[in-house]
């Protein structure tokens, strides 16, 4: 009973927009308006500029920093995958600098 009364009352009172709820029997769908948190930290240290300038448009730095150590070849393959499969707009002159940086901070152990 309360459930049936609540919506018209709220609508009459102007407390919610009239179209923010779609309901049918026991299912109520309410519009969502929210924000996602800040992506957080950037790459740090010598040589990090190329990574900051080219990688962070699509994903946060944490994705990279959480990776295991990989060989330079494996990092080159990752950077090339970003460019060719995912169309990352990496400046051609920055590719080697990014791979060097990644191989240095996350090199194979």
């Amino acid at each position: 009973m309360l459930k049936e009364l609540a919506l018209p009352l709220l609508l009459t009172a102007g407390l919610i927009a009239p179209t923010s709820v779609v309901a049918d029997s026991d299912i109520v769908l309410k519009s969502v308006s929210t924000d996602l948190p800040d992506p957080g930290r950037m790459f740090e240290g010598p040589g990090s500029d190329a990574a900051n300038n080219n990688c962070l448009a699509c994903h946060s730095a944490g994705m990279v920093l959480n990776q295991p150590g990989l060989t330079r070849d494996a990092w080159a393959a990752e950077v090339n995958k970003m460019i060719h499969a995912y169309h990352a707009p990496v400046e051609p002159q920055d590719v080697a600098a990014i791979v060097d940086y990644l191989a240095r901070i996350k090199g194979a152990q």
Binding site: V32, T34, D35, L36, P37, D38, P39, G40, H59, S60, G62, M63, L65, N66, P68, G69, Q109
Partner: peptide, 29 residues
């Protein structure tokens, strides 16, 4: 995780989510 790194923050910063292991903030994992 074998060989690491395995430490991740727990986050409550994401909408409609309680404490979750932060794998990546953007796009969220």
């Amino acid at each position: 995780l074998p060989g690491g790194p395995g430490v991740r923050p727990l986050t409550t910063d994401f909408p409609e989510k309680g404490a979750m292991i932060l794998q990546r903030s953007r796009p969220p994992l």
